[in-house]
Design a protein around this nucleic acid. Structure first.
Length: 276
DNA sequence: AAGCACACCTGCTAGC
DNA sequence: TGCTAGCAGGTGTGCT
Protein backbone atom coordinates (compact mmCIF):
# COMPACT_ATOMS: atom_id res chain seq x y z
CA UNK A 1 0.00 0.00 0.00
CA UNK A 2 2.08 2.87 1.15
CA UNK A 3 4.67 4.57 -0.99
CA UNK A 4 6.93 7.50 -0.18
CA UNK A 5 4.17 10.11 0.43
CA UNK A 6 2.23 7.81 2.75
CA UNK A 7 5.33 6.71 4.68
CA UNK A 8 6.47 10.32 4.95
CA UNK A 9 3.06 11.27 6.36
CA UNK A 10 3.39 8.56 9.01
CA UNK A 11 6.93 9.78 9.76
CA UNK A 12 5.67 13.31 10.36
CA UNK A 13 2.92 11.98 12.59
CA UNK A 14 5.44 9.96 14.58
CA UNK A 15 7.58 13.07 14.96
CA UNK A 16 4.63 15.15 16.14
CA UNK A 17 2.90 12.57 18.31
CA UNK A 18 5.30 10.04 19.81
CA UNK A 19 8.87 11.34 19.60
CA UNK A 20 9.87 12.22 23.17
CA UNK A 21 7.93 9.36 24.71
CA UNK A 22 9.56 6.35 26.36
CA UNK A 23 8.62 2.74 25.65
CA UNK A 24 7.66 1.04 28.89
CA UNK A 25 6.47 -2.33 27.69
CA UNK A 26 6.30 -4.24 24.41
CA UNK A 27 3.84 -6.96 23.53
CA UNK A 28 4.45 -8.96 20.36
CA UNK A 29 1.61 -11.23 19.29
CA UNK A 30 2.50 -11.65 15.63
CA UNK A 31 5.57 -13.79 15.06
CA UNK A 32 5.73 -13.07 11.32
CA UNK A 33 5.97 -9.32 11.93
CA UNK A 34 9.25 -9.77 13.85
CA UNK A 35 10.61 -12.56 11.61
CA UNK A 36 13.74 -10.57 10.75
CA UNK A 37 14.90 -11.22 14.32
CA UNK A 38 12.54 -12.37 17.08
CA UNK A 39 9.86 -11.17 19.47
CA UNK A 40 12.43 -11.23 22.27
CA UNK A 41 14.95 -9.16 20.32
CA UNK A 42 12.32 -6.52 19.53
CA UNK A 43 11.09 -6.44 23.12
CA UNK A 44 14.58 -6.22 24.57
CA UNK A 45 15.61 -3.59 22.05
CA UNK A 46 12.68 -1.30 22.83
CA UNK A 47 11.74 -1.61 26.49
CA UNK A 48 13.05 1.34 28.49
CA UNK A 49 14.15 3.23 25.39
CA UNK A 50 12.99 6.76 24.54
CA UNK A 51 12.02 7.62 20.96
CA UNK A 52 14.24 10.57 20.03
CA UNK A 53 13.72 11.13 16.28
CA UNK A 54 11.59 9.89 13.38
CA UNK A 55 13.32 9.34 10.03
CA UNK A 56 12.54 7.73 6.69
CA UNK A 57 14.57 6.10 3.93
CA UNK A 58 12.50 5.15 0.89
CA UNK A 59 9.51 3.29 2.28
CA UNK A 60 11.26 2.41 5.56
CA UNK A 61 10.46 4.23 8.80
CA UNK A 62 13.53 4.61 11.02
CA UNK A 63 12.83 5.78 14.57
CA UNK A 64 16.01 6.65 16.48
CA UNK A 65 16.16 5.36 20.05
CA UNK A 66 18.06 6.97 22.93
CA UNK A 67 20.76 4.28 22.72
CA UNK A 68 21.45 5.17 19.08
CA UNK A 69 19.77 2.11 17.62
CA UNK A 70 16.84 2.33 15.20
CA UNK A 71 13.35 0.93 15.38
CA UNK A 72 12.75 0.10 11.71
CA UNK A 73 9.22 -0.46 10.40
CA UNK A 74 8.23 -1.42 6.86
CA UNK A 75 4.48 -1.34 6.21
CA UNK A 76 4.65 -3.33 2.94
CA UNK A 77 1.12 -3.82 1.54
CA UNK A 78 -1.24 -3.57 4.49
CA UNK A 79 0.68 -2.41 7.55
CA UNK A 80 -0.55 0.46 9.70
CA UNK A 81 0.96 2.29 12.66
CA UNK A 82 -1.74 3.65 14.95
CA UNK A 83 -1.71 5.55 18.22
CA UNK A 84 -4.25 4.48 20.83
CA UNK A 85 -4.96 6.97 23.59
CA UNK A 86 -5.09 4.23 26.19
CA UNK A 87 -4.18 0.53 26.35
CA UNK A 88 -7.88 -0.16 26.86
CA UNK A 89 -8.77 1.25 23.45
CA UNK A 90 -10.40 -1.47 21.30
CA UNK A 91 -7.86 -3.70 19.64
CA UNK A 92 -8.18 -4.00 15.87
CA UNK A 93 -7.94 -7.44 14.31
CA UNK A 94 -4.40 -8.23 13.12
CA UNK A 95 -2.68 -6.10 15.75
CA UNK A 96 0.76 -7.72 15.99
CA UNK A 97 2.92 -5.40 18.09
CA UNK A 98 2.00 -2.97 20.88
CA UNK A 99 4.37 -0.44 22.43
CA UNK A 100 3.04 0.90 25.74
CA UNK A 101 4.38 4.45 26.15
CA UNK A 102 5.16 6.21 29.42
CA UNK A 103 2.36 8.74 28.85
CA UNK A 104 -0.29 6.02 28.86
CA UNK A 105 -0.76 5.78 25.12
CA UNK A 106 0.06 2.83 22.87
CA UNK A 107 1.76 2.72 19.48
CA UNK A 108 0.32 -0.25 17.61
CA UNK A 109 1.36 -2.10 14.47
CA UNK A 110 -1.60 -3.59 12.61
CA UNK A 111 -1.13 -5.65 9.45
CA UNK A 112 -3.73 -8.06 7.99
CA UNK A 113 -1.47 -9.52 5.30
CA UNK A 114 1.54 -9.81 7.62
CA UNK A 115 4.01 -8.75 4.93
CA UNK A 116 5.14 -5.84 7.09
CA UNK A 117 8.15 -6.00 9.37
CA UNK A 118 9.36 -4.55 12.67
CA UNK A 119 13.01 -4.81 13.69
CA UNK A 120 15.51 -3.02 15.95
CA UNK A 121 18.89 -2.48 14.28
CA UNK A 122 22.29 -0.89 14.76
CA UNK A 123 22.49 1.83 12.10
CA UNK A 124 26.23 1.18 11.76
CA UNK A 125 25.45 -2.39 10.68
CA UNK A 126 22.67 -1.84 8.13
CA UNK A 127 24.39 -4.09 5.59
CA UNK A 128 23.81 -7.06 7.88
CA UNK A 129 20.80 -6.03 9.92
CA UNK A 130 18.70 -4.12 7.35
CA UNK A 131 20.03 -4.94 3.88
CA UNK A 132 16.88 -3.50 2.34
CA UNK A 133 17.84 -0.06 3.62
CA UNK A 134 21.55 -0.41 2.88
CA UNK A 135 20.90 -1.11 -0.80
CA UNK A 136 18.36 1.68 -1.44
CA UNK A 137 18.88 4.10 -4.32
CA UNK A 138 18.80 7.88 -3.85
CA UNK A 139 15.80 9.72 -2.42
CA UNK A 140 13.73 11.10 -5.32
CA UNK A 141 13.21 14.43 -3.55
CA UNK A 142 16.96 14.86 -3.05
CA UNK A 143 18.28 14.24 -6.55
CA UNK A 144 18.66 16.76 -9.37
CA UNK A 145 18.13 16.21 -13.09
CA UNK A 146 21.74 15.08 -13.50
CA UNK A 147 21.27 12.54 -10.71
CA UNK A 148 18.08 11.20 -12.24
CA UNK A 149 19.80 11.02 -15.64
CA UNK A 150 22.67 9.07 -14.09
CA UNK A 151 20.36 6.37 -12.76
CA UNK A 152 17.92 6.10 -15.70
CA UNK A 153 19.94 6.80 -18.84
CA UNK A 154 22.43 3.92 -18.75
CA UNK A 155 19.67 1.34 -18.37
CA UNK A 156 18.02 -0.82 -20.98
CA UNK A 157 15.01 -1.42 -18.77
CA UNK A 158 11.54 0.02 -18.97
CA UNK A 159 10.87 3.30 -17.20
CA UNK A 160 8.35 1.83 -14.77
CA UNK A 161 10.71 -1.00 -13.83
CA UNK A 162 13.38 1.60 -13.08
CA UNK A 163 11.11 3.99 -11.15
CA UNK A 164 9.75 1.19 -8.97
CA UNK A 165 13.12 -0.52 -8.39
CA UNK A 166 14.12 0.58 -4.87
CA UNK A 167 17.80 0.05 -5.71
CA UNK A 168 17.51 2.62 -8.53
CA UNK A 169 15.36 5.24 -6.74
CA UNK A 170 13.86 4.80 -3.29
CA UNK A 171 10.21 5.20 -2.36
CA UNK A 172 8.24 5.09 -5.61
CA UNK A 173 5.67 2.31 -6.14
CA UNK A 174 2.84 1.43 -8.48
CA UNK A 175 0.68 4.53 -7.93
CA UNK A 176 3.28 7.25 -8.16
CA UNK A 177 5.26 5.64 -11.00
CA UNK A 178 2.12 5.87 -13.15
CA UNK A 179 1.30 9.40 -12.02
CA UNK A 180 4.87 10.64 -12.59
CA UNK A 181 5.13 9.08 -16.06
CA UNK A 182 1.77 10.55 -17.05
CA UNK A 183 2.60 14.03 -15.80
CA UNK A 184 5.90 13.88 -17.71
CA UNK A 185 4.18 12.70 -20.91
CA UNK A 186 6.35 9.58 -21.12
CA UNK A 187 5.07 6.03 -21.59
CA UNK A 188 5.77 3.53 -18.80
CA UNK A 189 7.45 1.10 -21.19
CA UNK A 190 10.05 3.42 -22.67
CA UNK A 191 13.59 2.20 -22.12
CA UNK A 192 15.73 4.30 -19.81
CA UNK A 193 18.37 4.55 -22.53
CA UNK A 194 15.84 6.07 -24.95
CA UNK A 195 14.89 9.03 -22.74
CA UNK A 196 15.78 12.45 -24.17
CA UNK A 197 17.07 15.36 -22.14
CA UNK A 198 13.71 17.18 -22.22
CA UNK A 199 11.94 13.98 -21.16
CA UNK A 200 14.35 13.48 -18.25
CA UNK A 201 13.82 17.09 -17.21
CA UNK A 202 10.05 16.58 -17.30
CA UNK A 203 10.32 13.31 -15.35
CA UNK A 204 12.41 15.06 -12.72
CA UNK A 205 9.99 17.98 -12.43
CA UNK A 206 6.97 15.65 -12.27
CA UNK A 207 8.62 13.48 -9.65
CA UNK A 208 9.23 16.52 -7.43
CA UNK A 209 5.82 18.11 -7.91
CA UNK A 210 3.74 14.95 -7.58
CA UNK A 211 5.53 13.54 -4.54
CA UNK A 212 5.48 16.96 -2.86
CA UNK A 213 1.78 17.48 -3.59
CA UNK A 214 0.96 13.95 -2.42
CA UNK A 215 2.80 14.52 0.86
CA UNK A 216 0.89 17.81 1.20
CA UNK A 217 -2.37 15.89 0.78
CA UNK A 218 -1.18 13.29 3.34
CA UNK A 219 -0.94 10.48 0.80
CA UNK A 220 -3.39 8.43 -1.24
CA UNK A 221 -6.08 6.25 0.32
CA UNK A 222 -7.95 4.01 -2.13
CA UNK A 223 -11.39 2.54 -1.65
CA UNK A 224 -10.11 -0.30 0.54
CA UNK A 225 -8.88 2.33 3.07
CA UNK A 226 -5.78 0.27 3.82
CA UNK A 227 -3.53 3.29 4.15
CA UNK A 228 -4.29 5.53 7.13
CA UNK A 229 -2.18 7.88 9.18
CA UNK A 230 -1.22 7.55 12.86
CA UNK A 231 -4.66 8.81 13.87
CA UNK A 232 -6.47 6.36 11.57
CA UNK A 233 -7.42 8.95 8.97
CA UNK A 234 -7.03 8.51 5.21
CA UNK A 235 -5.16 10.80 2.85
CA UNK A 236 -6.57 13.00 0.11
CA UNK A 237 -4.25 12.70 -2.87
CA UNK A 238 -6.38 10.02 -4.57
CA UNK A 239 -8.68 12.90 -5.56
CA UNK A 240 -5.81 14.24 -7.67
CA UNK A 241 -4.82 11.00 -9.43
CA UNK A 242 -4.73 11.66 -13.16
CA UNK A 243 -4.53 8.02 -14.23
CA UNK A 244 -4.08 5.59 -11.34
CA UNK A 245 -7.19 3.47 -10.71
CA UNK A 246 -9.08 5.51 -13.35
CA UNK A 247 -9.46 2.97 -16.18
CA UNK A 248 -12.01 4.19 -18.73
CA UNK A 249 -12.37 7.59 -17.13
CA UNK A 250 -11.25 10.65 -19.10
CA UNK A 251 -7.60 11.61 -18.96
CA UNK A 252 -7.48 14.86 -17.02
CA UNK A 253 -5.34 16.45 -19.70
CA UNK A 254 -6.81 15.30 -23.04
CA UNK A 255 -10.11 13.64 -22.15
CA UNK A 256 -9.32 10.30 -23.80
CA UNK A 257 -10.18 7.24 -21.70
CA UNK A 258 -7.41 6.12 -19.39
CA UNK A 259 -6.06 2.69 -20.36
CA UNK A 260 -5.12 -0.14 -18.02
CA UNK A 261 -2.68 -2.89 -18.94
CA UNK A 262 -1.25 -5.77 -16.97
CA UNK A 263 2.42 -5.06 -16.57
CA UNK A 264 4.77 -7.32 -14.67
CA UNK A 265 1.86 -8.87 -12.82
CA UNK A 266 0.38 -5.54 -11.76
CA UNK A 267 -1.91 -2.90 -13.22
CA UNK A 268 -0.47 0.06 -15.08
CA UNK A 269 -2.63 3.05 -15.99
CA UNK A 270 -1.70 5.49 -18.76
CA UNK A 271 -2.97 7.75 -21.54
CA UNK A 272 -2.03 6.69 -25.05
CA UNK A 273 -2.30 10.24 -26.35
CA UNK A 274 -0.50 12.17 -23.61
CA UNK A 275 2.31 9.67 -23.10
CA UNK A 276 4.78 8.87 -25.88
C1' DA B 1 21.28 -7.93 -17.02
C1' DA B 2 16.55 -8.32 -17.45
C1' DG B 3 12.31 -10.38 -17.10
C1' DC B 4 9.41 -13.52 -15.75
C1' DA B 5 6.70 -16.58 -12.31
C1' DC B 6 5.91 -17.30 -7.86
C1' DA B 7 5.86 -16.78 -2.85
C1' DC B 8 4.48 -14.52 1.26
C1' DC B 9 -0.96 -13.43 3.48
C1' DT B 10 -5.88 -11.69 4.22
C1' DG B 11 -9.85 -9.39 2.61
C1' DC B 12 -12.75 -7.27 -0.55
C1' DT B 13 -15.36 -7.12 -4.90
C1' DA B 14 -17.10 -8.39 -9.37
C1' DG B 15 -19.23 -11.82 -11.73
C1' DC B 16 -21.68 -15.86 -12.24
C1' DT C 1 -28.03 -15.09 -1.63
C1' DG C 2 -23.75 -17.48 -2.00
C1' DC C 3 -19.73 -19.09 -4.01
C1' DT C 4 -15.29 -18.31 -6.42
C1' DA C 5 -11.83 -16.15 -9.03
C1' DG C 6 -9.25 -12.24 -9.29
C1' DC C 7 -7.04 -8.47 -7.51
C1' DA C 8 -4.64 -5.25 -4.03
C1' DG C 9 -0.25 0.24 -2.49
C1' DG C 10 5.71 -4.38 -1.72
C1' DT C 11 9.69 -7.08 -1.84
C1' DG C 12 12.62 -11.25 -2.33
C1' DT C 13 14.08 -15.44 -4.64
C1' DG C 14 15.02 -18.41 -8.17
C1' DC C 15 14.71 -19.69 -12.81
C1' DT C 16 15.26 -18.73 -17.84
Amino acid sequence: MPELPEVETVRRDLEALVVGARVERVVVTGARTVRRTSAEAVRAGLEGRALVAAGRRGKYLCVTLDDGRWLVVHLRMSGQLLVADAPSAPLLAHTHVRLALDDGRELRFVDPRTFGEVVVVDPARLDDEAPGIASLGPEPLDIDVAGLTRVLRPRRRQLKALLTDQHVIAGIGNIYADEIAHAAGVRFDRLGASLTRPELARLHASMQSILTAAIGARGSTLSDAQYVDLGGLGGGYQEHHAVYDREGQPCLRCGRPVLRVAWSGRSTFFCRRCQR
